[in-house]
């Protein structure tokens, strides 16, 4: 009896499909990754930030508001890309294109299908974060080159940490109707209140503690440490642990939810 195929091999078998899919969408991936940081950095960092004149100590070590806000925008962009990639495309693969059903009839297992789609997402997050960092590098907002490189990695990490809970939800509900609501009451408040635009020390202690429970803050702070060269080992470990645990738990939930939906 033939031996089971490894998960890595199953991932390789899907490369041609996901790459064909990526080729269809890469212009949008690159173009939106180009304009989002540029417009946001100009509007928030340069134009609005021009009014912000405070001691760098109050901006978590940033020498300008632009330098302060860029890591927040990077993490926020990663979160939104994660939300976007694991919402409509996942429902679409179930409902409109039926991609997952086609794959399911092949030797691919449900977890292989999840791995394949996540692989595509991770690559898109990598492109998005790389373009983001390249666009903003000329603004002089990265203290070190390796910090900029690290910020790209954080972009992928944060993207996956948000894509996975979304993936689980999309697989569970199989419907797109609630995405707009979730965007307004979930994603936008997280983006606005997770320390991307203002230091959490500005909030009262209870509100600050609440914001620190939010996953985006961990991504923002991690990106900021790298961009501003204010690396704090134990704090960074906490962030990585938090986002990593979130990813692992929701990876397992995603596989289970997709199994439930496909294997009826």
């Amino acid at each position: 009896m033939s031996a089971p195929v490894s998960s890595l091999d199953m991932l390789g078998r899907q490369f041609d499909f996901w790459w064909a899919l990526y080729r269809r969408t890469f212009r949008g991936n690159v173009v939106s990754s180009f304009f989002f940081p540029l417009f946001n950095a100009l509007a928030m960092g340069v134009l609005l930030g021009g009014y912000v004149k405070v001691d760098p100590a109050r901006l978590e070590g940033a020498t300008s508001y632009l330098a302060f806000v860029v890591p927040g925008l990077l993490a926020g962009n990663a979160m939104m890309t994660g939300f976007g990639d694991a919402s409509y495309p996942v429902v679409g693969a179930l409902k409109w294109d039926r991609t997952y059903y086609a794959m399911q009839a092949s030797p691919l297992r449900v977890r292989d299908i999840v791995n394949g789609h996540l692989g595509l997402m991770a690559f898109r997050f990598l492109v998005a974060s790389s373009v983001f960092v390249l666009v903003l590098a000329p603004f002089g907002v990265f203290a070190t080159w390796w910090g900029a490189l690290g910020a790209v990695v954080v972009g992928v990490f944060v993207g996956l940490a948000f894509a996975l809970p979304m993936y689980a939800l999309s697989a569970r509900l199989g419907e797109e109707t609630w995405f707009t609501l979730l965007w307004r009451v979930g994603v936008m408040p997280l983006f606005l209140f997770s320390g991307a635009f203002f230091p959490l020390s500005n909030l009262s202690p209870p509100l600050s503690a609440l914001a620190k429970l939010m996953p985006l803050w961990h991504g923002v702070d991690l990106a900021r440490m790298l961009c501003l060269d204010t690396w704090d080992g134990p704090q960074a470990l906490l962030h990585i642990g938090y986002l990593g645990a979130l990813s692992v738990v929701f990876y397992l939930v995603s596989v289970r939810e997709l199994e439930r939906r496909l294997q009826h």
């Binding site: 899907q14 041609d16 064909a20 899919l21 294109d97 991609t99 059903y101 086609a102 794959m103 691919l108």
Partner: peptide
Amino acid sequence: QEDSLDAELNVSENLFVYGRYFG
């Protein structure tokens, strides 16, 4: 019963990517 072809890929690409799933 219900077609699960990829509408965006061309005819031969549909067969090719599917064959790859089988290694």
